Simulated scan of single mutants.
Amino acid sequence: MIRSLVVAVLLLFSTVPAVAVLPDEILSDPVLEERARNLSAQLRCMVCQNQSIDDSNAELARDLRVLVRERLVSGDSDQDVIAYVVSRYGEFVLLKPRFSARTVLLWGAPILLTLAGVTSLLVFARRRNTLPTQQKLSSDEEAKIRSLLEKQD
């Protein structure tokens, strides 16, 4: 009975998402901490690459979380913190890339590929409809073919 209860409790808590922020990183000011958490959720862990630094347990993610908190404590705005991190690590550090001249292909590629696919389908369908249709043989042509086949036998 106790074993079943322990297993049930473990299964219940296994669905709770893991948070990588360590207690020694948490700021005493709840407003700054909330800002730090929001910023951390926007930044990519360069080690994991598909997790935010808020969710990652990697050492680099921890360093970035500490850096974000230090910048906030020193008085930087959210935009200043993001700009500072991007200047050091590049646009790839952002989980949601900005729309700019450098990322226009990234944002426009799905639309361009969809348009290219639809255009290809329309061209293919139009060409298919304009292909000459096969005509039946006339009775003279059928007679010639039969005579040729009979000669071969």
Rank of each mutant, 00 (worst) to 15 (best):
Q134M: 15
L105V: 14
T103C: 13
D54F: 11
Q49R: 14
G90E: 02
R98W: 08
R102A: 13
V47M: 10
Q42M: 14
S14D: 05
F92A: 15
R146D: 14
T15L: 08
L121N: 09
D29A: 11
R146M: 12
A18W: 13
S28R: 13
D54C: 03
N38D: 10
Q51N: 08
C48E: 10
E33W: 01
L131G: 05
G75S: 01
R44M: 11
V19G: 05
D29G: 04
L105R: 11
D76A: 15
L106C: 05
S28H: 07
L12P: 00
R62F: 06
L112E: 01
K136P: 15
L149P: 02
D63G: 12
D55T: 07
V31I: 14
R98C: 06
L121W: 12
A109T: 13
L22T: 08
A36H: 01
L106S: 05
Y84P: 03
L12D: 02
T103E: 13
R44C: 10
L39R: 00
D153I: 12
E141V: 06
L112T: 03
D55L: 13
D153N: 11
I111W: 06
R65L: 05
N50Y: 13
S147K: 13
D80Q: 12
I2M: 11
R127V: 09
L106I: 10
Y89H: 14
F99M: 13
R126W: 13
C45F: 00
L137M: 07
F124C: 10
V47R: 07
P30N: 03
I82P: 00
V123M: 06
A125W: 06
V73A: 03
E141C: 08
S147I: 08
S52G: 07
S74W: 00
N129H: 11
G117F: 06
S14R: 04
V68G: 01
V104H: 06
G117H: 01
K151P: 01
R37S: 12
S77L: 05
R44K: 12
P132S: 06
S40H: 03
R88V: 15
M46W: 02
V21M: 06
D54T: 04
T130W: 12
P110T: 04
V68H: 01
V16I: 13
P110M: 00
P30M: 04
V118I: 15
Q152N: 09
T114H: 04
R35P: 00
E34V: 08
L115S: 12
P17K: 00
E142Q: 09
N50M: 08
I26D: 02
T114Y: 07
R3W: 09
S147C: 05
L27V: 06
G75A: 07
A20P: 00
R102D: 10
L115T: 09
L5A: 14
Q79N: 06
K96H: 12
L39C: 03
R3L: 14
I145P: 01
V118L: 15
M46Y: 02
S120D: 01
L122M: 15
L137W: 03
L32E: 04
